[in-house]
Design a protein around this nucleic acid. Structure first.
Length: 258
DNA sequence: AACGGAACCTGAAAGC
DNA sequence: TGCTTTCAGGTTCCGT
């Protein structure tokens, strides 16, 4: 269930585990014998660069990359593995994915899912004018627009919910109704929310909020019925683009115009 | 073109 | 206890 922060943490882990190593065993024969040059990310996509090949990885809802010993047995829900050696040591990375929405794609050049992404808030930055340009003159709800990967890359249901609360903007507000100051607030809030999550989540074994036993580290995500941490009003729930959305009816404002 | 809903898949938690 | 319903941090397709 990862969004940009978890995917970025996964990228850093994979870079540590793989970069400079040579693949000794893989789910795909075309990767065996190749050296890993580096690991990149745009939005929610990972791009593992090897000599002469690219491996794209999307985590879907439940995908995780984990580091294990080469001799360790197949993990529960393991779908793929990539073993490497640096000449001295050997180890294994495993891709586990309970719900199987994740993707692994071997390619020789960049795939469309990668090249068609909108600006990535961490790599490209995000300001009000960039956001306004990306939104264009569409009129859909701001939350739906933020989750569109061609508008901004890497935002999912949680980052959108949290960022709009931080920006004090109603998630149902139409994009063409937002004022300049609301756009600035949203752009700042998206970046701040991602950075907060990034700091909180850096671990070798990612834990997602819906994992059994996991705590909810977010301010309002999945907290409808509880009180707004800012103004104390009771948070409500609404469905936008098919996704559950908590919001504060008191301090999150609709667009400036209607 | 746009929008809601279903689909893909496997569970956990809540409700009865 | 056990059965049913709802929900889940993603993306895509399909019908209206």
């Amino acid at each position: 269930m990862p969004e940009l922060p978890e995917v970025e943490i996964t990228r850093r882990n994979l870079r540590r585990w793989l970069a400079g190593g040579t693949v000794t065993r893989s789910f795909d024969r075309r990767l065996v014998g190749r050296r890993v040059v580096g690991v990149g990310r745009r939005g929610k996509w990972l791009r593992i660069e090897l000599d002469g090949r690219l491996l794209f990885s999307h985590l879907g809802m439940t995908g995780k990359w984990l580091k294990r010993g080469t001799g360790e047995p197949r993990l529960r829900w393991e779908r793929a593995r990539l073993d490497v050696t640096d000449g001295m040591e050997a180890w294994s990375t495993r891709f586990v994915d309970l719900r199987r929405f994740g993707q692994l794609i071997v390619a020789c050049e960049d795939i469309e899912a990668w090249t068609s992404l909108g600006p990535d808030p961490l790599l490209d930055g995000l300001d009000a004018s960039g956001l306004a340009r990306a939104l264009g003159r569409r009129r859909r709800a701001i939350k739906e627009a933020l989750m569109d990967q061609s508008i901004v890359a890497g935002i999912g249901n949680i980052m959108a919910t949290e960022a709009l609360w931080r920006a004090r903007v109603d998630p149902r507000a139409r994009t063409d109704a937002l004022s300049g100051s609301q756009l600035r607030a949203v752009a700042r809030a998206v970046t701040a929310t991602i950075e907060r999550s990034l700091k909180a989540g850096a671990k070798a074994e990612m834990e997602y909020v819906h994992d059994a036993g996991a705590r909810n580290p977010f301010r309002i995500y999945r907290r409808a019925g509880q009180r707004c941490p800012r103004c104390g009003a009771v948070l409500l729930r609404v469905v936008i683009a098919g996704r559950g959305t908590a919001y504060c009816p008191s301090c999150q404002r609709p667009g400036a115009t209607t």
